[in-house]
Design a protein around this nucleic acid. Structure first.
Length: 329
DNA sequence: AAGACGAAAGTGGTTGA
DNA sequence: TCAACAACTTTCGTCTT
């Protein structure tokens, strides 16, 4: 997923060689099943395969065992033999690669630091604090990423979206697009873009709700970012909204597939172009719920979809007329 | 009484001169 | 920069179950 994004963002000559190298060396591995889109992948190192836990598709064969080459029989041994830390992440301003100095006067094996070295440690900690977040860019990133984390947890977004949003924000910073815009605005716009990229769309309204930015601002910044960073995102499909709305309404899976069916027919006939995707999704869900005897009121559907009943009525009038569904509602 | 329906007027954003 | 425009909302009265 990150690879795709990277190819769309043009290489920026201002990026230092060091950073470029670091990024190029990032191991590129599939994290999403190409068949069903599930991120639940299982590495079966006995058979050297990566298998999708959802649909069983074998995604990768002859993989390298990334596990440790040593064995540990108790916790103490594990602590001693482990030589690596957490995976790198784009959601922490230094990608999670910073050095930590413990506040306790113990070394990694838990032994006390001799008193004659204490002063040295104190100085080390002081410099560590200064260096960790140094410079305007670092401070900007640190603030923005915490903001990003706050927004996305209020929206209940999965990790993958946060990572994706962080990548978008980082490239915005690298391309010097922040100046003149509020950090919060750019964060919100990155998040909106990431949501669309990962096919878990949130409306501009929902983003604006949790952020301290108006809907207008988010939209404007989003358009700016996509233009400047050459991010091309297809218009959101109503289908992407169906599962979320359906579960909020407590509708069954059958209703979901029925409404997706309806939407796909509608798209063939060009009934969705120019229409707000949420409105189309809402109307399709409403129709499906009626057809399958799980009737919801227009108001309920309108509520979760963030559109009015009138819009649902307009959409569903178009849909029923043009698709010749031959069913009286 | 609640929900569905539809007309009419208003709103915010895009487009093209 | 401005007017035209389409989509959508708000509001409200009427009909149906």
């Amino acid at each position: 997923m990150n690879e795709e994004l990277k190819t769309e963002i043009p290489d920026e000559p201002r990026v230092s060689r060091r950073r470029r190298q670091q990024e190029d060396n990032t191991p590129k591995r599939t994290t999403v099943c190409p068949d069903c889109g599930s991120t639940d992948l299982i590495g079966d190192y006995e058979r050297a395969e990566v298998v999708c836990a959802n649909c069983g598709l074998v995604i990768d064969e002859n993989i390298v065992d990334m596990g440790p080459e040593w064995r540990a029989f108790d916790h103490e041994q594990r602590d001693k033999r482990t030589r690596v830390g957490a995976p790198i992440t784009y959601t922490i301003h230094d990608k999670g690669l910073s050095t930590m100095i413990d506040w306790r006067n113990k070394d990694i094996y838990g032994r006390d630091i001799p008193a004659r070295n204490r002063a040295q440690w104190y100085r080390l900690r002081k410099w560590q604090r200064k260096i960790r977040i140094s410079g305007a860019t670092e401070r900007n990133l640190a603030f923005a990423l915490s903001e990003l984390d706050r927004d996305s947890s209020r929206l209940g977004l999965p990790r993958s979206v946060r990572e994706s949003a962080s990548v978008v924000y980082r490239s915005a910073v690298e391309n010097k697009l922040i100046r003149g815009r509020s950090i919060e605005g750019v964060v919100a716009a990155s998040l909106y873009a990431a949501c669309r990229r990962c096919k878990v769309p949130r409306t501009l309204d929902e983003i604006a709700e949790v952020s301290r930015v108006t809907k207008k601002e988010v939209g404007r910044t989003y358009r700016f970012l996509t233009r400047e960073l050459n991010i091309k995102l297809p218009p959101t499909s109503p289908v992407d909204y169906v599962p979320r709305f359906a579960s909020e309404l407590g509708l069954s899976g059958e209703v979901q597939s029925k409404s997706i069916e309806i939407i796909e027919k509608a798209m063939e006939k060009g009934l969705t172009s120019g229409r707000g995707p949420t409105g189309v999704a809402a109307a399709a869900l409403y129709i499906a719920s009626v057809l399958l005897g799980e009737r919801k009121t227009q108001r309920d559907v309108a509520e979760v979809a963030g559109v009015t009943e009138v819009t649902i009525r307009n959409r569903y009038k178009e849909l029923t007329e043009q698709l010749e569904m031959g069913v009286t509602l």
